[in-house]
Simulated scan of single mutants.
Amino acid sequence: MINAADFVDAAQRRGYGLWAGVPCSYLQPFINHVIGRDDVRYVSAANEGDAVAITAGAELGGVRAIAMFQNSGLGNALSPLTSLNHVFAIPSLLIITLRGEPGGPPDEPQHALMGPITTCMLETMEIPWEYFPSKAGTIGVCLDRVDDYSRRSSRPYALVMRKNSVEAWPSPPLAPLKAVRVSGRSGGPPAPALFCRHEFLRAIQQSTGPDDLIIATTGYTGRELYALSDRCNQFYMVGSMGCASSFGLGLAIAQPQRRVIVLDGDGAALMRLGALAAVGREAPARLTHVVFDNGIHESTGGQATAAPGIDFAAIATACGYRHAGVATTPAELLAQLGTADGPRFVQVPVLPGALPDLPRPRVAPAEVAARLRATLAVGGRP
Rank of each mutant, 00 (worst) to 15 (best):
N3D: 12
A11E: 14
Q12T: 13
Q12F: 14
R13F: 01
G15I: 11
Y16Q: 06
L18F: 09
G21V: 10
C24A: 14
S25T: 09
I31M: 10
V34C: 15
V43Y: 03
S44D: 00
A45Y: 05
G49F: 04
D50G: 15
A65M: 07
G75D: 10
L93G: 12
L93T: 02
L94C: 07
L98F: 11
G103Q: 04
E108Q: 13
M121P: 00
T124A: 12
P128G: 03
E130T: 05
E130K: 11
K135L: 14
T138K: 11
Y157L: 06
L174W: 06
P176R: 08
L177E: 11
R185N: 06
S186G: 00
P189W: 08
L194P: 02
C196Y: 12
Q206M: 15
I214G: 06
G219F: 07
G222N: 00
R223L: 08
Y226W: 09
D230S: 08
G239V: 09
A244E: 03
I253W: 10
I253G: 15
Q255L: 05
Q257M: 04
R258W: 06
I261N: 03
V262K: 15
R286E: 07
R286V: 14
T288G: 03
V290M: 00
V291A: 08
E298L: 07
A304G: 01
A306Y: 10
G309H: 09
A314I: 11
I315Y: 03
A318G: 13
R322T: 08
G325N: 09
T328D: 03
Q336I: 00
L337M: 02
G338H: 03
P343F: 02
P349L: 07
L355W: 07
L358N: 10
P359Q: 03
A370Y: 05
A370F: 01
A374E: 15
A377N: 12
G379W: 04
